[in-house]
């Protein structure tokens, strides 16, 4: 079931490739704007890089949240899904995972290239990619709750950022912290394990909370 949803959503995303590219280019542009704002001092940029890349990833992943359920909501597919006998949590999990595949994975793949712009050493680039790989699914899963709650509301796009961004803070802290620890020559395993823990917790709880939110929003 989950696989079926993922396959379907990926197919739909491939038909509307511009959406995927918009998110990716938003990420690239935001990261590239920072040096223009603060100046090309390499030492400072190296220090700022983890935070900048992570904040940009947060914003990019949040921007795409509105699309997670809205098109299915508009054409009535979502209502059919709610009525179908399969578990709604599983369905939601599939939607969140395909959201991650469409918006998160491109960010993970792009991050090392952007890290080079900031002159990060090779090890830090690897840690950055790893931390994004563990962290971005959490963003999609937590974001799904916000997307489900604001479904069909006017001004939902701005509202979702208000609801979801405070909840992203732990991921931001430990994601950027891992990269900082590696540039400072300290161990970064603890950060990555914590990110992994966040991922497991959100995998367990988020589909359930999102399913409840969807039922509320569609009632």
């Amino acid at each position: 079931m989950i696989l079926w949803i993922i396959k379907r959503d990926l197919l739909l995303a491939m038909r509307r490739r511009s959406d995927v590219l918009t998110t990716l280019f938003f990420f690239i542009i935001v990261v590239s704007l920072f040096p223009l704002g603060v100046g090309p001092e390499m030492n400072m940029l190296r220090m700022m890089a983890p935070g900048v890349v992570w904040v940009a990833a947060l914003l990019a992943s949040m921007l795409a949240l509105g699309r997670m359920f809205s098109s299915d909501y508009v054409d009535g597919t979502l209502e059919q899904m709610l009525l179908s006998p399969v578990s709604l949590s599983g369905l939601v999990m599939g939607k969140a995972l395909s959201h991650w595949l469409v918006t998160g994975v491109p960010l993970v793949l792009m991050a090392p290239v952007l890290g080079i712009q900031y002159d990060l050493p090779v090890e830090a680039l690897m840690v950055l990619t790893l931390s994004l790989l563990l962290g971005t699914p959490v963003l999609s899963l937590v974001g799904a709750i916000g997307a489900a709650l604001t479904l069909g509301l006017r001004g939902g796009g701005v509202l979702v950022s208000l609801l979801v961004l405070p909840l992203y803070i732990p991921v931001l802290i430990f994601g950027a912290g891992a990269v900082e620890a590696s540039t400072a020559g300290m161990g970064f395993d603890a950060h990555l394990s914590l990110l992994g823990a966040f991922l497991l917790v959100s995998l367990v709880f988020s589909p359930w909370a999102t399913a409840a939110s969807l039922r509320i929003s569609m009632a």
Binding site: G146, L159, L163, L167, A219
Partner: peptide
């Protein structure tokens, strides 16, 4: 803001409850 954006009071109550509970779970982590 979430409650203010929803016109139907019962939906506003329930949606608010979910976000409040998610917040409470997150506060220690944050």
């Amino acid at each position: 803001s979430l409650q203010a954006a929803i016109d139907d009071p019962r939906r506003a109550d329930k949606a608010g409850a979910i976000i409040a509970l998610v917040g409470v779970v997150n506060i220690p982590i944050i």
